[in-house]
Write a protein that binds this DNA or RNA. Structure first.
Length: 524
RNA sequence: GGCGCAUUCGUCUAGCGGUUAGGACAUGGCCCUUUCAAGGCCAAAAUACGGGUUCGAUUCCCGUAUGCGCCA
């Protein structure tokens, strides 16, 4: 097909999040792109947890990352074992940076021994002053190389004196050019980089060095990451060269932006996968949405499942410019996937929300509470909290089916359907009146509905509909709303809902009539 | 401040020298309809600016502007 395709064979790619917070939607998207790329070309996708920052790294965040990537269906071939995170799947562990000190030490020593790196004893104050100086004369603030030529004995002396130090890279001055998988040619002049700090000490590398060593150790062939790393890439290339290692290919994905076009972050609202999961977004919707932020298949098709993405995906079709996170489109895609779900599955997914709103409860004690959002919940019988009536799952299924095409996110279900489970509905009097109707018209409609419904013995949706529709026609020619609207409001208390026939059928004769009577009282 | 990256409807995007600049979300209108959805139809809506190159630039090159990112 194209050049890129021909060259890619069994790639090894990775996502390397730090467990310092919940899985971010941007990280998830980068993971997804890596995953798709690896599957498209028959390679491996690796999850590497980067826990160098011991202060901020927490096991709970590692769990969150693992749980939510799996939930999305972005599964790794090598990485922490989800069943037992202490274990590493694959041949290239251990994945914990905190457990790889020995390896790092080897490389750092090598760099020092061969003269590619050196100890620097400059104090933060000194550095700050230099930085300010360079800034003041309009130059890039870079290290002036003061400790670069320190003799071996001086270094030894300083170390034995316990002087605080860092390890700097002797940045060679050259033009670095690399062929980005997405941006094509990128050129940087390394003389602008200065001698960067690559390690705090001989066993503690900083980000760029650690990434280089780990990617090499894991035989990563393609580093696909966010555009915010473009400026790290030339530095890493220099490190690869100093270490005598062939660098991998690099590809930099455009960033996701918030409404204000700055990098998507917490102040833009929900950014973690777990928040979206809790709100009731479906993983397939999130995947479909995320992939379209920076990629598109060159057709008018908007809906893609994971398998079809794997078939279609190509970095060639990735966008170069950043994309604003479009909440509305996500909502739309989610609604689409909700409508596609089979009703049993959808009901299962909605149950936790109904329980959380305390509308219903599981009957069996063995059934877990509180429910797990997005998890599996299989229950057969439920107790309606207010009335203590027991209902079958079919009953709930039926209710949810009325709302399937109205649901955008799962969490809306309780607000939409609460009147089925509550004893009384709260009705505002004026809401009962359709268009120009006065109290009397609304009252007449309700009375008439009550009479008709009271006569129905065979309480089925079809019967109810047939009878009511005839009356609706007669009640006021040309606008059935005068008859139907007050009825629907009497039953639901809501301006918007499913139709009155199906609602009446579900509510049962007794409750239906009772609610109609209640509503009539307001109009006397 | 330096360096880097980017720039097509409000948003996501198609386009890879000649198109009535296409699609989707959102918006507005109409149809269907008791309401809300869903669905159908229609409308409004974009090539940042300035130079080149070319018979011809949204497309290629160079500036400018703007935005974003990184460094410290």
């Amino acid at each position: 097909m194209d050049d890129l395709d021909l060259k890619i064979e069994s790639p090894r790619v990775r996502i390397a999040p730090s467990p310092t917070g919940a899985l971010h939607i941007g990280t998830a998207r980068t993971a997804l792109f890596n995953y798709l790329f690896s599957k498209r070309y028959g390679g491996k996708f690796i999850l590497r947890i980067e826990d160098t920052d011991l202060e901020r790294s927490k096991p709970q965040w590692e769990e969150d990352i693992i749980e939510n990537l799996r939930w999305l269906g972005v599964d790794w071939d090598e990485g922490p074992n989800p069943e037992n995170p202490k274990e590493y799947l694959g041949d290239f562990g251990p994945y914990r940076q905190s457990e790889r000190k020995k390896t790092y030490e080897e490389y750092i020593k090598k760099l020092i021994d061969q003269g590619s790196a050196y100890y620097c004893f400059c104090t933060p104050e000194e550095l700050e002053a230099k930085k300010n100086y360079f800034m003041s004369i309009g130059k890039a603030p870079q290290y002036d190389g003061k400790c670069r030529e320190l003799s071996g004995s001086e270094v030894k002396k300083n170390i034995s004196l316990g002087k605080p130090s860092a390890i700097r890279f002797k940045t060679p001055k050259k033009k670095i050019v690399f062929d980005d998988l997405i941006h094509k040619k990128i050129e940087v002049d390394s003389s602008l980089l200065g001698d960067m700090v690559i390690a705090k000490n001989t066993s503690l590398p900083l980000y760029n060095l650690a990434a280089v060593i780990d990617d090499y150790a894991m035989q990563i062939t393609h580093v696909i990451r966010g555009e915010d790393h473009i400026s790290n890439t030339p530095k890493q290339i220099l490190l690869y060269e100093a270490l005598g290692i062939e660098p991998p290919r690099f590809g930099h994905l455009p960033l996701i932006l918030g409404q204000d076009r700055s990098k998507l972050s917490k102040r833009h609202g929900a950014v973690s996968l777990k928040e979206y999961k809790k709100e009731g977004y479906l993983p397939e919707a999130l995947v479909n949405f995320m992939v379209f932020l920076g990629w598109n298949p060159d057709t008018d098709r908007e809906i893609f499942s994971m398998p079809s993405l794997i078939k279609e995906f190509s970095l060639e079709k990735c966008q170069k410019s950043a994309a604003v996170f479009n909440q509305n489109k996500l909502l739309w895609i989610n609604g689409f996937y909700v409508r596609q779900k089979n009703i049993k599955k959808l009901t299962e997914l909605c149950l936790p929300y109904l329980m959380e709103a305390n509308l219903i409860q599981p009957v069996l004690e063995s059934q877990k509470y509180p429910p797990v959002f997005g998890g599996e919940t299989i229950r057969q019988k439920f107790l309606i909290s207010e009335s203590q009536e027991t209902v079958d799952i079919d009953y709930i299924e039926q209710i949810i089916s009325f709302y399937q095409e109205r649901l955008k996110v799962l969490s809306e279900i309780s607000e939409l359907t609460d009147f089925f489970f509550k004893k009384n509905v709260i009705i505002q009097k004026d809401m009962l009146k359709w268009k120009t109707a006065d109290d009397k018209t609304a009252l007449d409609a309700l009375k008439s509905a009550e009479n008709i419904l009271s006569d129905i013995k065979d309480w089925t949706q079809e019967k109810i509909k047939d009878r009511l529709l005839i009356e609706a026609q007669n009640f006021k020619t040309g606008d059935r709303g005068y008859f139907l609207w007050p009825l629907r409001v009497a039953l639901t208390g809501k301006k918007a809902s499913a139709g009155p026939f199906e609602i009446a059928a579900m509510l049962g004769k007794e409750k239906t009539i009772a609610r109609i009577k209640e509503a009539q009282k307001m109009l006397f």
